[in-house]
Nucleic acid binder design. Structure first.
Lengths: 181, 181
DNA sequence: ACCTGAACACCGTTCAAGT
DNA sequence: ACCTGAACACCGTTCAAGT
């Protein structure tokens, strides 16, 4: 039950809407969360959201950036750990937003802004991946392919609800591939 | 402009609707194809579709099965080719339905019937994968992980519009991993 | 059994009106 | 500048009425 009528600044209120959207998109999914439901959860009229976001995809964009920002911040703590542990950490970290992965792919085909974010996301993550693999001494010839294989494996693990043993086996196999010749 | 009023049998008419749905879902995408648009393309009233399919997800299910059936039939022709060629062939074959991959993941979270199909699909394809990898002599210890990595790589290549060189590099790297110790 | 026009509940979004 | 109730166009789906 947030304060109404500008007791609070614009950014503050926007952040409140964003937090609610983040919770609902992750818990219920983007498709299953109507703008009306989001508005109700935030305690405002349905159309009020449009004062702070241009449309529903813009809300998604803000949620994606918030989650990505948090994950990137936390990543620094494990950036120097062994590759296998890094992989496992990333997968566990992103597990919470597994529904958002498919959503991004679906919306990217329909909303240019989401498509752009998706490209941007892969540039960032693959750049981090490259640094990690170079430090591990993977040879330059196959590093591009390895990066894609790793990124796709992470996406796959997120979207396909594997159990812990399967995830560990995959992380292990990938890391083993990279820490050998 | 298909014949109306039972000049044709039920299965025939259903097949006609299905063909139109397959074309539209692949060309425009599932989300972008409204039931009204599908009906119009097939030359029937909007609600007529519901005489042949229980709902939109049921249409998707039929399209998925039709495509899968075709791909599995054609697969026999390359089942004995080298692994790298098989991989490339599968990716090229499934490329046409790249939009459907994300759709399946998104709808699987919302429609139990699609979720079931998705599980079924992975059982079938991973079983084929296992046969191929066993024939190539991949050791039993890591074969489960390799299958998942391969399946996720294929999904990733489909959903991320890589160019030919990138796809070849990935197929090559995976096959190389499997044809060595 | 098959097909339809009209209606229904819901969706994202817009607009005119308020403060 | 911010917020709202009412409306709009569209969506998937249902229903009563036709043949």
């Amino acid at each position: 039950m947030p304060a109404n009528k500008r007791q609070q600044g614009r950014e503050e209120k926007r952040a409140e809407l964003l937090a609610e959207a983040r919770r609902l998109f992750i818990e219920d999914g983007y498709e299953a969360t109507s703008m009306a439901a989001l508005a109700k959860a935030a305690g405002v009229a349905g159309n009020t959201i449009y004062w702070y976001f241009t449309d529903k995809d813009d809300v998604l964009l803000a949620v994606l950036n918030a989650v990505l920002s948090d994950v990137l911040t936390d990543y620094r703590q494990v950036a120097s750990a062994p590759l296998e542990d890094q992989l496992g950490w990333v997968v566990r970290q992103l597990q919470q937003m597994n529904r958002l992965v498919s959503t991004v792919h679906t919306r990217a085909a329909l909303a240019p802004a989401i498509d752009e974010w998706h490209t941007h996301f892969h540039l960032i993550t693959e750049s981090l991946f490259r640094t990690a693999l170079q430090q591990a001494g993977v040879d330059r010839a196959s590093i591009d392919a390895e990066i894609k294989i790793g990124a796709f494996a992470i996406e796959g693990m997120l979207t396909h609800g594997l159990d812990d043993a399967q995830q560990r086996a995959i992380c292990q196999r990938l890391a083993q591939q990279w820490t050998n010749g």
